[in-house]
């Protein structure tokens, strides 16, 4: 039983790694369709990864060892997060290894090194990207913390496994106003953290409007592959959090194969739905000016604060 748990952990990581490019590709495909284009197929990102792993790396002569280890740290920290996020089964065997705060800070670890790597070659764009990325990350942080608080308030824990099981046990919580507000707040943060419109345009070619892309302009080959993969993984993680923490239905609470199968399907469906929402949103909205982003995040903070307050009042 214990071993099954650990096997499932590893299986979940592999599943996440496999799903992540597909999710990104799906969003892109859907966006293309919404732009009345045919677009690349959803599995296009897999090809891109494969291509990038096959290419050489060209590194700036100004860059240092930090530039070379950063992709591994980013990738490793993101995978570590997937060890903690219940995707198909809750609680996970390693649930006690970390809680939501750990998740957030592990992701921040990745962002931290990505920003440093952006500064390392000494280009203006890298610095610009790093500066903006850290600004957005910092301002998004309070909302995340409050959303966590809100969840903890209703579930009585910040460990993800317990939040999920608690909610499954008490479904009334799911549709409470606090929960919904927290969901919206976290959704906005997801847009910011994963570099989606209206905060950042993942498809831009224009350096001056970039955030995430600007930092990785110097990366190539396998390093770029790792970073891209990690960022898709991050998207998947946020989607999983949004879906499994707020709408935990379908997730397995036992290691029963049938339940697990249902859970995988449920997960894919939920990710697809969220991907669809993102695609719709990205089609609908224009990119905000950088200095309007704090207003958006401020709004999400207020939503999260309301979420916590209403949860508290209703408790």
């Amino acid at each position: 039983m214990v071993i099954t748990g650990y096997v499932l952990e590893i299986a979940q990581v592999i599943l996440a790694l496999l799903l992540a490019p597909g999710l990104a590709g799906f969003v892109r495909w859907l966006k293309a369709r919404l732009q009345n284009r045919r677009g690349a197929p959803p599995w296009q990102p897999y090809f891109e990864l494969r291509k990038l792993f096959g290419k050489e790396v060209v590194m700036s002569n100004n860059a240092s060892w930090l530039f070379r280890i950063a992709p591994y740290i980013i990738f490793a920290s993101t995978i570590t997060v997937t060890l903690l996020v219940p995707m198909i089964v809750a609680p996970l065997a390693l649930d006690g290894m970390g809680d939501l705060l750990m998740v957030v800070y592990l992701l921040l670890l990745g962002t931290f090194f990505l920003a440093l790597a952006g500064l390392d070659p000494g280009t203006a764009f890298g610095g610009m990207g790093a500066s903006r990325e850290m600004t957005v990350a910092a301002i998004a942080e309070p909302t995340i913390a409050l959303a966590i608080f809100g969840l903890a308030l209703s579930a009585g824990s910040t460990n993800l496994g317990r939040i999920v099981t608690q909610e499954l046990a008490n479904t009334a919580v799911t549709l409470s106003p606090g929960h919904i507000l927290a969901f919206v707040a976290l959704f906005i943060v997801t847009l910011a953290e994963t570099g989606r419109l209206p905060v950042d345009n993942p498809a831009t070619h224009l350096e001056l409007t970039m955030i995430h892309e600007a930092m990785i302009l110097e990366y190539s080959g396998r390093y770029l592959a790792l970073i891209e993969w990690a960022s898709w993984l991050k998207l998947t993680i946020f989607f999983t959090l949004l879906s499994n923490l707020f709408v935990p239905w379908g997730i397995a609470t036992t290691f029963d194969p049938a339940a697990l199968a249902v859970a995988v399907i449920a997960l894919i469906v939920k990710l697809a739905v969220l991907g669809g929402i993102i695609a719709v949103v990205e089609t609908r909205v224009a990119k905000l000016r950088l200095f309007r982003v704090p207003e958006l995040l401020g709004a999400s903070f207020v939503l999260a604060l309301l979420a916590v307050t209403s949860s508290f009042v209703l408790k």
Partner: peptide, 12 residues
């Protein structure tokens, strides 16, 4: 893009 061709911002 349907062919998997896309334009990028950096020669890297």
């Amino acid at each position: 893009e349907r062919f998997g061709i896309h334009f990028v911002a950096s020669p890297r």
